[in-house]
Amino acid sequence: MSAKVEYVLRFGDNSLILGQRLAEWLGHAPVLEEDIASANISLDLIGQARLWLTLAGRIEGKGRDEDRLAYHREQQDFRNFTLLELPNGDYAYTVVRRFLFDAWHCLALDALSGSHDTDIAAIAAKSRKEAEYHRLHSGDWLVRLGDGTGESHARTQAALELQWRYTAEFFDSDAVDAEMAESGAGFAAASLRDEWLEEVTTVLAEATLKVPAAAKFVSHGKRGRHSEHLSRLLAEMQVLQRTHPGAKW
């Protein structure tokens, strides 16, 4: 698989898996207004996934469309960050996960908007507007929960401690990143770290939350080495396509 296909899949899978997780809240959110907001964000993410996966299939040139890629790959073929596949947990967990990712996503899409590859640049530019709103939404909730009640503060800090260790992956560079950065179609993964950390630190301070210590652990979902949770998520997501091969829906 070419570096470009793999790279595009990473973006598609990030949006798909997070969109799938977020949609689980629909009907179960803390307040009706949030059911609606979460659904909007989930819809944006799935829309992005469709664009990225379609592009990946086209570059690959083997006739795989968005659904072939979403429903007929095994867990080791998925390229999303490990953070995004972890089960939802409580609302604090969901908000923290989203904020950590949304802050990265905005920076990444900014960088990609200047990609030499016009297809990549176009999808990035479209997704960027959506990601901006997602970041506003999750950042706002992070502050409300962090600086809310004693209970919400404790839950949010705990969620942060649990998930912080998965953020190293955002900035961990491999051969795919290097090749894409080199060609001008992508960006150097590590280059976003400082800005991300600064932005996240500012919001965490406003939320009266402590920045957790850096961990030695690095997850490798984007290279296809996932947690135990992804295959279960996929088993559920792919069930109909797998049970009825060749059927159209």
Binding site: A29, P30, V31, A92, V143, R144, L145, T149, E151, S152
Partner: peptide, 11 residues
């Protein structure tokens, strides 16, 4: 969702 609603109100 109660603790979430309470937190937002407290904030």
């Amino acid at each position: 969702g109660q603790w979430v609603r309470d937190a937002a109100m407290a904030y």
